[in-house]
Simulated assay, not measured.
Amino acid sequence: MTAQLQTTAPRPTPIARILNFLHRAWIAELRVYSSIARAIARRPAIPHGGTGIGYHRPVLTVLFIFIGLSALEIPILDLIVHPWPVARITLLVLGIWGVTWMVGLLCAMIMRPHSVAPEGVRVRSGLEVDVPIDWDDIASIAIDRRVDEPKRPRVTESEYAERMQDETNIEIELERFVAIRLPGLAPKGGTHQVDRIRLWADDPRAFLDAARPFLTAP
């Protein structure tokens, strides 16, 4: 597609920003615990008849390091503030919550993979991002590894890119402009009209193999 569809949205008010932040924080908190529960039950969020494709491999080591350091920090701080019970209990609660949150984030990345299913593709990332795309809207899917500039927005013009460490390796060309919704408020979040989607898959060949039967179906 060569045409581009531009949309504008009014700048959100400070109250709207605060309410949106609180809502997103609450949803993220719930998904931390639901993701841990899914990991314990070994029930990833993959639609019936679908295939899950992970995207967490590039950051797995970093997440394990952060979890280990956060867990190690708890007894060290406890020894430092041992004479002050209020500070000790407060830091203990915060420390346990922090480790739990990091474990939940790791579980979310593993238990909420990209999915290729009979109803379409779902592009996911962490605790929040979940973008469904119907097969009727997909023209083609190809392996195409690209590295973008750091801190590049997810949506640029009519392209949405869900990167992992600034990289993508799957490109989905759409038949037409499709509305997608991202977490947060406009301009970075909210609804966007796109005709191309790029994402990172740990195994791009498996992603393509899972999608091929749906793309070639009559």
Rank of each mutant, 00 (worst) to 15 (best):
M1L: 09
M1H: 11
Q4E: 11
Q6K: 03
T7Q: 13
T7R: 14
A9E: 09
P10L: 10
R11K: 01
R11W: 09
T13H: 12
T13W: 12
A16F: 12
A16I: 10
R17Q: 10
L19H: 05
I27M: 04
A28P: 05
R31F: 14
R31H: 14
S35N: 08
A37Q: 07
A37G: 07
R38K: 14
R38Q: 11
R38S: 06
R38T: 08
A41W: 09
A41Y: 08
I46L: 04
H48D: 15
T51M: 05
G54Y: 06
G54M: 05
Y55I: 13
L60G: 00
T61E: 15
F64W: 15
G68V: 05
G68Y: 12
L69M: 02
L69P: 06
A71L: 14
A71I: 15
I74N: 01
I74E: 03
P75M: 10
D78E: 14
P83D: 05
R88P: 07
L92W: 13
W97S: 07
V103G: 00
A108K: 04
M109Q: 00
I110F: 10
S115P: 11
A117P: 00
V121T: 01
R122Q: 11
V123E: 02
S125D: 01
G126R: 03
G126W: 08
E128L: 15
D130F: 11
I133W: 11
D134E: 14
D136G: 07
I138V: 15
S140I: 07
I143Q: 14
D144W: 01
D144A: 13
R145G: 04
R145L: 09
R146H: 15
P153N: 03
S158K: 03
S158H: 07
S158E: 14
E159S: 09
E159H: 09
E159Q: 09
A161V: 09
E162G: 04
Q165C: 11
E173N: 09
L174D: 03
L174K: 02
E175V: 13
F177L: 06
L185Q: 03
A186P: 15
P187D: 00
H192N: 04
F207C: 01
D209Q: 07
A210Q: 00
R212W: 00
F214C: 02
F214K: 03
